[in-house]
Lab assay of single mutants.
Amino acid sequence: ERVRARYDYEAQNEDELSFKKGDIITVLEKDDGWWKGRNGKEGLFPSNYVEELE
């Protein structure tokens, strides 16, 4: 599954994923509120910062 970033997100910890608004992220795992994904790097990000691609 792929999602698009709705906002910029700056990683707060080294296991998190940074991205810019409009970036496409491949979702690897979904957990409550935090998803694991890849966009060149791999890490956790808040699920409310992304939207599913149509």
Results as ranks from 00 to 15, higher is better:
Tyr9His: 06
Arg38Asp: 14
Asp31Pro: 09
Ala5Cys: 07
Val50Asp: 01
Ile24Asp: 01
Asp32Leu: 08
Lys20Ile: 08
Glu51Tyr: 03
Ala5Trp: 00
Tyr7Trp: 14
Glu1Ser: 14
Asp8Trp: 01
Lys20Tyr: 06
Gly33Ala: 10
Tyr49Ser: 08
Asp8Tyr: 01
Ala11Gln: 05
Lys41Tyr: 10
Ile25Lys: 02
Asp15Pro: 05
Asp15Asn: 15
Leu44Phe: 15
Asp15Ala: 13
Ser18His: 04
Arg6Cys: 13
Arg38Thr: 14
Gly37Gln: 00
Leu17His: 02
Ser47Ala: 14
Ser47His: 09
Phe19Asp: 01
Lys30Trp: 07
Gly43Glu: 02
Ile24Val: 10
Gln12Cys: 10
Glu16Leu: 00
Ser18Leu: 00
Asn48Ser: 15
Asn48His: 14
Tyr7Asn: 09
Trp35Val: 07
Glu14Ile: 11
Glu1Ala: 13
Thr26Cys: 11
Val50Thr: 07
Val3His: 08
Trp35Arg: 02
Lys21Ala: 14
Leu28Ala: 05
Leu28Ile: 14
Tyr7Ser: 10
Lys41Ala: 10
Asp15Trp: 15
Asn39Ile: 15
Leu28Thr: 12
Val27Trp: 00
Lys20Val: 09
Thr26Tyr: 09
Arg6Val: 14
Arg38Trp: 15
Glu1Leu: 15
Asp23Leu: 01
Glu1Val: 15
Gly37Pro: 04
Glu10Asn: 11
Asp32Asn: 15
Asp32Arg: 06
Arg4Cys: 09
Glu42Arg: 05
Trp35Phe: 10
Lys36Thr: 07
Asp32Met: 06
Glu54Val: 13
Asp23Trp: 01
Gly37Asn: 02
Ile25Phe: 07
Asp8Thr: 05
Asn48Lys: 10
Asn13Gly: 11
Gly43Ala: 03
Thr26Ser: 09
Arg6Met: 14
Leu44Trp: 15
Tyr9Arg: 04
Glu1Phe: 14
Asn13His: 12
Val3Thr: 04
Val3Ser: 03
Lys30Pro: 03
Gly37Val: 01
Leu44Ala: 08
Glu10Ser: 10
Asp23Asn: 05
Arg6Glu: 06
Gly43Pro: 02
Gly43Ser: 01
Trp34Asp: 05
Leu17Cys: 03
Ile25Met: 05
Tyr7Ala: 14
Glu14Ser: 12
Leu17Ala: 04
Gly33Asp: 14
Ser47Asn: 09
Phe19Tyr: 02
Ala5Ile: 01
Val27Ser: 01
Glu29Gln: 14
Gly22Tyr: 03
Gly40Ile: 12
Gly43His: 01
Gly40Glu: 11
Lys41Pro: 08
Trp34Cys: 11
Tyr9Cys: 06
Glu42Pro: 06
Glu54Ser: 13
Asp23Met: 07
Lys36Glu: 06
Gly43Asn: 01
Glu16Tyr: 07
Lys41Arg: 14
Ile25Tyr: 00
Leu28Phe: 08
Asn48Leu: 08
Leu28Met: 13
Gly22Val: 02
Gly22Thr: 02
Lys21Tyr: 06
Arg2Ile: 13
Val3Leu: 04
Asp15Ser: 12
Ala5Thr: 04
Tyr9Val: 03
Asp31Met: 15
Gly22Met: 04
Arg38Gln: 12
Asp23Pro: 00
Arg4Ala: 06
Leu28Pro: 02
Arg38Ser: 14
Glu42Val: 15
Arg4Ile: 13
Glu1Thr: 14
Arg6Trp: 05
Glu52Trp: 11
Glu54Leu: 12
Asp32Glu: 14
Lys21Val: 12
Asn39Pro: 01
Glu29Pro: 02
Arg6Phe: 06
Trp35Ser: 06
Ile24Phe: 10
Gly37Ser: 01
Lys36Arg: 15
Ile24Ser: 02
Gly22Lys: 02
Glu14Arg: 07
Asn39Met: 15
Glu1Met: 15
Glu51Asp: 09
Val3Arg: 06
Asn48Gly: 12
Arg4Tyr: 00
Phe45Met: 03
Gly37Leu: 00
Glu54Ile: 14
Tyr9Met: 02
Trp34Ala: 04
Asp23Ile: 02
Trp34Phe: 10
Phe19Trp: 00
Gln12Asn: 10
Asn13Cys: 13
Glu51Trp: 03
Glu52Gly: 12
Glu52Cys: 11
Ala5Gly: 06
Ile24Thr: 06
Tyr49Gly: 05
Glu16Cys: 04
Lys36Gly: 04
Gly33Ile: 13
Gly43Tyr: 00
Arg2Trp: 06
Tyr9Gln: 05
Lys30Gly: 03
Phe19Val: 03
Asp23Thr: 08
Gly37Trp: 00
Lys36Cys: 11
Arg2Ser: 09
Glu14Gly: 12
Arg38His: 14
Arg2Leu: 13
Lys30Leu: 04
Tyr49Lys: 07
Lys41Cys: 08
Val3Ala: 09
Lys20Phe: 08
Glu14Tyr: 09
Phe45His: 00
Glu51Ala: 04
Arg38Ala: 14
Gly37His: 00
Ile25His: 02
Thr26Asn: 08
Lys41Gln: 11
Glu16Asn: 04
Arg2Ala: 09
Asn13Phe: 08
Lys41Val: 10
Glu52Tyr: 12
Lys20Gly: 06
Gln12Tyr: 05
Gln12Leu: 10
Glu10Cys: 14
Lys30Thr: 06
Asp32Ile: 07
Glu51His: 06
Lys21Cys: 08
Tyr7His: 12
Arg2His: 12
Val3Pro: 02
Lys36Val: 12
Glu42Lys: 06
Leu53Ser: 07
Pro46Lys: 05
Glu16Gly: 06
Glu16Ala: 00
Asn48Gln: 14
Asn48Tyr: 13
Tyr49Leu: 14
Arg38Leu: 12
Asp15Lys: 11
Ser47Trp: 07
Asp15Met: 13
Asp31Asn: 15
Arg6Leu: 15
Asp31Arg: 15
Lys21Met: 11
Asn48Thr: 11
Ile25Ser: 01
Glu29Asp: 13
Phe19Ser: 02
Phe45Val: 03
Pro46Arg: 05
Leu53Pro: 07
Arg4Phe: 00
Val27Glu: 00
Asp8Arg: 00
Lys36His: 09
Gly40Thr: 11
Glu42Ala: 09
Leu17Trp: 00
Gly33Leu: 12
Pro46Ile: 03
Tyr9Leu: 00
Thr26Ile: 15
Ala5Arg: 01
Lys21Asp: 05
Gln12Asp: 08
Ile25Leu: 10
Thr26Gly: 06
Asp15Cys: 13
Gly22Leu: 03
Asn48Ala: 14
Asp31Lys: 15
Tyr49Asp: 03
Asn39Gln: 09
Leu28Gln: 05
Ala11Val: 02
Val50Asn: 02
Leu53Gly: 06
Gly33Lys: 12
Trp35Glu: 06
Glu16Asp: 04
Asn39Thr: 13
Tyr9Gly: 04
Trp35Gly: 06
Lys36Pro: 05
Val3Met: 11
Ile25Asp: 02
Lys36Ser: 04
Glu14Ala: 14
Leu53Phe: 13
Trp35Tyr: 09
Lys21Gln: 11
Leu28Gly: 03
Ser18Pro: 04
Glu16Lys: 00
Phe19Pro: 02
Glu10Gly: 04
Val27Met: 04
Thr26Trp: 08
Ile25Ala: 04
Gly43Val: 01
Ser47Cys: 13
Leu17Gln: 02
Arg38Cys: 14
Glu10Phe: 11
Glu14Val: 10
Ala5His: 03
Asn48Ile: 12
Gln12Ile: 09
Arg38Gly: 08
Asp23Gly: 03
Lys21Ser: 09
Glu1His: 15
Val27Cys: 04
Asn13Ser: 14
Glu42Trp: 02
Trp35Ala: 05
Arg6Ala: 11
Gly43Trp: 00
Lys30Tyr: 07
Glu14Asp: 14
Pro46Ser: 05
Lys30Asp: 04
Glu14Asn: 11
Asn39Leu: 15
Ser18Asp: 08
Lys41Asp: 09
Glu1Arg: 14
Tyr7Ile: 11
Lys36Phe: 14
Glu16Met: 02
Leu53Asp: 07
Gly43Asp: 02
Asp15Arg: 12
Ile25Gln: 02
Asn13Trp: 07
Ala5Phe: 00
Asp8Ala: 08
Gly40Leu: 10
Glu10Met: 11
Gly22Ala: 03
Glu54Arg: 11
Gly37Lys: 00
Leu44Val: 14
